[in-house]
């Protein structure tokens, strides 16, 4: 087994392990173990934003055209957005497929 290296020294670690930078969790990319990803069919999408509301990981953000796009750095592939989309515009596609 590889030696596990510390990423910070005990003398420099923050007081009480507090995280002093707001919103820093976004640096921690958590989407790498996903097995399915959501693919939106813009033909069917009515820009209602239900996917944005229901995604438990807050992956979705709105594009300039008003569509919603999931950020694959954080998407876990849970399929909730696909389940909630009133127009069945979202399909869950296995990661190994293009």
């Amino acid at each position: 087994m590889a030696v596990q290296d510390a990423i910070i020294g005990w003398k420099t670690i923050t007081h009480g392990c507090h995280v002093l930078e707001p919103g820093s969790t976004r640096h921690f990319k958590t989407g790498d173990w996903r097995s399915m990803r959501p693919v939106v069919d813009k033909e069917k999408c009515i820009k209602c934003g239900m996917c944005y509301i229901f995604c438990p990981d807050m992956c979705y953000s709105q594009t300039e055209e008003g569509y919603y796009e999931a950020n694959m750095d954080y998407c876990k592939g849970c399929g909730i957005c696909a389940n909630e989309c009133p127009k069945d515009a979202i399909t869950m596609v296995p990661e190994e497929e293009e």
């Binding site: 596990q4 510390a6 910070i8 005990w10 009480g16 392990c17 507090h18 995280v19 002093l20 707001p22």
Partner: peptide
């Protein structure tokens, strides 16, 4: 804003 009580992954816990 700051966060208190985050996760201490194995690369951090010993130092904490």
């Amino acid at each position: 804003p700051i966060s208190m009580g985050p996760v201490g992954i194995p690369e951090v816990y010993t130092e904490a």
